[in-house]
Simulated assay, not measured.
Amino acid sequence: MSAHRSHRPWRRPLLSAAAIAAIAVPSVAFATDTPAPTSTPSPRSAQQTLDDTYYKDAIGKTGPELKGALHTIISKQTKLSYDEVWDALKATDEDPDNPANVILLYTGRSQSKTTNGGGEDDWNREHVWAKSHGDFGTATGPGTDIHHLRPTDVSVNSTRGSKDFDNGGEELAEAPGNYTDDDSYEPRDAVKGDVARMILYMAVRYDGEDGFADLEPNDQVDNGSAPAIGRLSVLKQWSNDDPPDAFEKRRNQVIFDQFQHNRNPFIDHPEWVGDIWK
């Protein structure tokens, strides 16, 4: 096992926003015989609607109770075959600026949807929870769950292999911002949180039922074929430092609307990471 280098300062891109100043003008009330109109209630947000419906049995829970409730909720899903994953990823990971392309997870490169395959510069189906960690392969279930399957450059996917996630290593020339050593892989900053939330989704969704292993994160690397992946402490930090962005939220919605009809709860409620794994 190679030694990990010290943690580098966070390298998130700077975001700019236009600030709009609002000037409050006090209103003046006048006596009148006409009754004041009844105010129209503001429409409920999409998140409030989800909490009232999809997540209603999880709201207010923490720890094992929250994890159990979420498992029951997200286990109600449509399962895809491994062949169906190809077309699903072309929709879930579509480049918002070029509908003919997908965005590759580790490189961030926009690449034609038609270049999927096994060639060195093609894109393929990366199991973010490495399929050897629990020996589920490409079986329908964890092996085809598109909440953790993403398009990646073939050779970069090969470099990641089945390594656990952690900070450290040497930077990949083919994928700047990604680092690896003998036993771990560190993705680029823009998708660190995505990776963490995919791993934690898998730990809640697959708990030993359906003939598959009970998948759990732990705080170590070099887990081999055990149904475990790490490091949990690093994944929690990544999720906190890289909150869900528009691309990740859209992806979650497309999976829910068009394919599996279940959600990754840690995209909708990132705070649940800390509520379950304290």
Rank of each mutant, 00 (worst) to 15 (best):
P13N: 11
A21R: 07
A24S: 14
A24Y: 15
V28C: 06
T32L: 01
T34R: 03
A36W: 15
T40V: 14
P41M: 07
S45K: 07
A46G: 08
T49D: 09
D52Q: 13
T53R: 13
D57Q: 07
K61P: 09
G68E: 04
K76F: 02
K76Y: 03
T78M: 08
W86T: 07
T92F: 03
D93Q: 04
D93E: 05
P96W: 00
N101W: 10
V102Q: 06
I103F: 06
R109P: 04
S110Q: 02
S112Q: 03
E120L: 15
D122N: 11
W123R: 08
T138G: 13
P142Y: 10
H147V: 09
L149D: 02
G169R: 00
E171Q: 04
E174V: 07
N178F: 10
D181K: 06
D183K: 12
R188W: 15
V191W: 03
V195D: 13
R205W: 00
G211A: 03
E216D: 15
A226T: 14
A226H: 12
G230T: 10
K236E: 12
W238H: 09
S239W: 05
D241I: 01
F247V: 15
F247R: 13
V254K: 05
D268E: 05
V273A: 03
I276W: 00
I276Q: 00
